[in-house]
């Protein structure tokens, strides 16, 4: 187990390195002087000269990278051109907003989708199965930004049950915060359920075919015990990996939902910064999301042996 964990941790290091090179290099690919890109068009000559010096622009590129990396490690991601705020503070603040929405949505999706997927697999080709498969394929095909818009139209504008514009943080006002979260979370849940149901169904089907399920039945266990004690845990492995991927993908993909419901989250920050050519923020967001994605997948992998102890063996 220890060996498995350490091998997995070590294997993340090269990826980490390449990711940071990629994020550094990407911004350098933009035509123009990096210093003026970072400081914006309105910066005066002195500030530019100072920035060129601190960024080491007179040095060779590898040195510039090391300087940048050194700053990053110390938590210095630069400052936003628009409001002068430190990028790290901005990113963390926005991330908290996105993360609470995403985590609630994915958590709910798993709670709904996994039992549905297993039930569909248990009665494969039955009426329930066909309904679940058809519904999940349908949900999967509806883009979140349109689904969100339709939910907004129905519950916010036509029925007037929920507030259409604005956002209140849960930390400031828990009740109002939750109310503002209902529609975006519902949008995300409907979409993710479609994806997770299909995976849970497929992996349960694979497991139900195996001899140890028949063995469990041969021991005289009831169908529900077979499904819960033997099938569920083994079938959850692939779904677990998928959850990691979904969490990571939502960090980028949540921008559309945040746009629909005007939520000041991380996704919106990235898009706005690209609009505003606020490259320090773009760079900071990219790095932050990539690292979070790596971290989430690392944690998912490290917990995987809970569902399948075989992976720790070589």
């Amino acid at each position: 187990m220890l060996k498995f964990a350490s091998t997995r941790l070590l294997s993340a290091i090269p990826t980490l390195f390449i990711v940071s090179v990629a994020v550094f290099g990407l911004i350098r690919l933009i035509p123009g002087d990096p210093a003026s890109l970072m400081l914006g068009d309105l910066a005066d000559a002195d500030a530019l000269a100072a920035a060129r010096k601190t960024m080491g622009l007179d040095q060779p590129v590898p040195v510039q990278f090391l300087i940048w990396l050194g700053n990053v490690v110390q938590g210095d991601l630069g400052r936003s051109v628009l409001n002068g705020q430190p990028v790290l503070d901005l990113v963390l603040h926005r991330f908290a907003t996105s993360a609470q929405m995403v985590l609630i949505a994915v958590g709910l999706s798993v709670l709904i989708a996994v039992p549905l997927g297993m039930a569909a697999a248990w009665r494969q080709n039955g009426g329930l199965d066909l309904t679940i498969v058809a519904l999940s394929t349908l949900l999967l095909s509806v883009p979140t930004f349109w689904l969100g818009l339709m939910i907004l139209l129905a519950f916010g504008l036509k029925l007037g049950w929920l507030p259409v514009l604005g956002y209140v943080s849960i930390a400031d006002n828990p009740v109002a915060g939750l109310i503002y979260l209902v529609m975006p979370v519902l949008t995300l849940v409907l979409h993710e359920v479609g994806i997770i149901v299909r995976m849970a169904r497929a992996s349960t089907l694979d497991v139900l075919r195996l001899d140890y399920i028949t063995h469990a039945r041969a021991k005289g266990m009831s169908e529900s015990a077979v499904l819960l004690h033997h099938a569920a845990r083994n079938a959850f492995g692939p779904t677990w990996t998928l959850i990691g991927l979904i969490l990571g993908n939502l960090l980028g993909g949540v921008a559309v939902v945040e746009t629909v419901f005007t939520i000041p989250g991380l996704g919106r920050l990235i898009v706005d910064s690209i609009y505003a050519r606020d490259y320090a923020v773009v760079q900071g967001c990219l790095l932050f999301v990539a690292l979070t994605y790596l971290l989430v997948n690392l944690v998912v992998d490290l917990l995987y042996p809970l569902f399948d102890p075989r992976v720790t063996a070589e």
């Binding site: 063995h215 041969a218 005289g220 009831s222 083994n234 569902f307």
Partner: peptide
């Protein structure tokens, strides 16, 4: 179902061909 489960395991035992897949890997 109940009578069948009482017979399975207690009165009827079964050994399968493939030892790699006949035991639950996560238990």
């Amino acid at each position: 179902g109940k009578a069948l489960r009482a017979v399975r395991g207690a009165r009827l035992g079964m050994v399968f061909q493939e030892p790699m897949t006949s035991l639950n890997p996560s238990m």
